[in-house]
């Protein structure tokens, strides 16, 4: 299959059919910040930090580059006033959960995000789903899952599975962009709950 030609930040980029804009950018050395993305996992599109501006058929849209498929003659901008504003607000929203996350603080510096913009939230978890998806897609154990929805959404270990699988694995801990303490804490809670019941 012939290559697809597109433009990212003014640079002509060759990509293969089926690649995402993020893939194409990475393969030609163009940096797009990400948070919930992991090369071993299916693209998720949850954090929206990788949002870029695309121009296609005369229309400008804001899309998650980790999911948007490359197309012929697509014009992509990875930075613009709007993109920077989007990333700044997203980081501020996440800092309300994890004000000490090194990864978030580094991005905050780049985009001018203030750590105290929004009211603090008691959970460190930013619900990027890396632990949940890693456990499901790579380990195929589903020991940790999302529960509830909207702002009430949280991660929870399934005690019956976690008690068997987690102590010898813990591969999800280093994936956590905020601090693996959250995962450890929730895991312990899950196991204690299991014991007590």
């Amino acid at each position: 299959m012939s290559d697809i030609l597109l433009t990212i930040d003014g640079k002509e980029v060759r990509a293969k059919e089926g690649m995402t804009v993020l893939n194409a950018a990475q393969s030609s050395g163009i940096f797009i910040p990400t948070l919930c993305h992991h090369e071993k996992l299916e693209p998720y599109g949850g954090c929206r930090i990788c949002t870029v501006e695309v121009e296609s058929r005369g229309r400008t849209n804001y899309v998650a580059s980790c999911l948007y498929p490359v197309e012929k003659n697509l014009v992509v901008r990875t930075r613009s006033e709007k993109i920077d504003k989007i990333r700044k607000v997203l980081i501020e929203l996440l800092l309300a959960h994890a004000p000490d996350s090194p990864q978030l603080l580094e991005m905050a510096k780049e985009y001018g995000a203030k750590s105290v913009r929004f009211g603090k939230e008691p959970s460190f978890c930013v619900l990027c789903g890396l632990c949940v998806r890693y456990c499901a897609e790579v380990k195929k154990k589903n020991a940790i899952a999302f529960v509830d929805q909207g702002p009430k959404r949280e991660i929870n270990f399934i005690p019956e599975i976690a008690s068997k699988e987690c102590w010898n694995c813990k591969e999800c801990f280093p994936l956590c962009p905020t601090s693996y303490l959250q995962a450890a804490y929730v895991l312990t809670q899950g196991l204690v709950g299991f014991k007590n019941s």
Binding site: G46, C47, L90, L93, A96, G119, L127, G150, P151
Partner: peptide, 20 residues
Amino acid sequence: ADESCGKCVPCREGIRQMLR
């Protein structure tokens, strides 16, 4: 807030903060 799925940050966290 009750009906958002909670998957993406702008919707989940945006609703949370706007509601506050």
